[in-house]
């Protein structure tokens, strides 16, 4: 870990201004991802602006009938909120499928959206990695990559976004609200938040330097069955090999988004027209153009099978 300076901001604007005004400055929220990366010198900020005292830790109804979730709401609090559990069950299910109780107590909304990949070569500073060190190459291509991406990847990087919460937020058409160092606010759909790697895998989101996530908003509830199935090699405390978030209506129509397969939560809205035709029809469109590696080719059929399982579960719940 490199030496760094530290301050605690008192307001969202002060926090954004503090980061925007200083090269190498970063926000720190729960610290569960950033500190690990700093210890390994994968991240080397020179200044940390702690945002835990800036408010933004409430969940409030919006005028549009949805919810506004402050960025500092912990994963634990968000998953446990009665409104979220009732109206956005897929979000609760996705969050509690992630990490561990202790980590979720610290993890925040904004930090979770910005968690970095779990590609093992990204974590080993002796290895080439375009995401960690632009231009150095990608050791994962041709190496151990069973858990890496199958779609949306590039010749520069095949890493996945490892998050669970983001998959549910993508499914729910959430929006991300931000403020920058000048106090300018903007709102962007979650679909535009995470970027595909292309030639610049180190650029992972649409955020500008110093831009602070203030909240995530959810549109009005969708009804239907809310399901999240996370497939992994052990029963808990592991990142997704593949995950499926779905909201399925009694007539079989609905939405599906996939985690563990791509550099961002993977959802193809056009494919959802086929939800009533079954998982194969949906998956064929969602994974059209997939470029898996030899080791992770199984993820494509696995994603389809996982979706089939989720659909079967929704049908069973409807009968019950």
């Amino acid at each position: 870990m490199r030496a760094f300076t530290y301050e605690r901001a008192r307001s969202p604007l002060a926090a954004a201004a503090a980061v925007a005004g200083k090269r190498g400055a970063r926000f720190i929220a729960g610290g569960t991802n950033l500190l690990d990366l700093m210890k390994l010198e994968i991240e080397t900020p020179t200044h940390l602006v702690d945002v835990q005292d800036i408010g933004l830790d409430r969940i409030e109804p919006t005028d549009g009938g949805g919810l506004r979730i402050g960025t500092l709401v912990t994963n634990t609090a968000l998953a446990a909120d009665p409104r979220v559990r009732r109206d956005y069950g897929v979000l609760t299910r996705a969050i509690v499928a992630g990490a561990s109780g202790q980590l979720r107590n610290k993890a925040t909304v904004g930090g979770n959206l910005l968690q970095r990949t779990r590609c093992p070569y990204f974590y080993d500073t002796n290895q080439a990695c375009n995401k960690r060190k632009p231009g150095s190459g990608c050791a994962a291509i041709g190496g151990v990559n069973r858990l890496l991406g199958v779609i949306g990847t590039s010749d520069a990087c095949i890493a996945t976004n490892p998050g669970d919460m983001a998959v549910a937020l993508r499914l729910l058409d959430a929006s991300v609200e931000t403020v920058d160092g000048q106090g300018k606010t903007r709102t962007m759909p979650i679909a535009e938040f995470h970027r595909l790697p292309g030639d610049t895998p180190h650029v992972e989101t649409a955020l500008q330097p110093g831009e602070l996530i203030t909240a995530v908003t959810l549109p009005r509830p969708l009804g239907g069955r809310h399901l999240y199935h996370k497939v992994r090699d052990r029963a808990s405390y592991a990142f997704a090999i593949v995950s499926v978030a779905a909201v399925i209506q009694p007539d079989g129509s609905g939405r599906a988004a996939f985690g563990g397969v791509a550099p961002r939560p993977w959802r193809v809205e056009a494919a959802e027209a086929a939800m009533r035709d079954g998982a194969a029809a949906v998956a064929a469109q969602v994974f059209a153009g997939a470029r898996p590696t030899h080791e992770n080719a199984f993820k494509v059929p696995l994603a389809e099978r996982t979706l089939a399982g989720v659909m079967a579960e929704a049908r069973a719940e409807n009968r019950a």
């Binding site: 497939v231 593949v242 696995l302 099978r305 996982t306 089939a308 399982g309 079967a312």
Partner: peptide
């Protein structure tokens, strides 16, 4: 799991 192959 007959869908996902997960073993428990």
């Amino acid at each position: 799991d007959s869908f996902t192959g997960e073993i428990r």
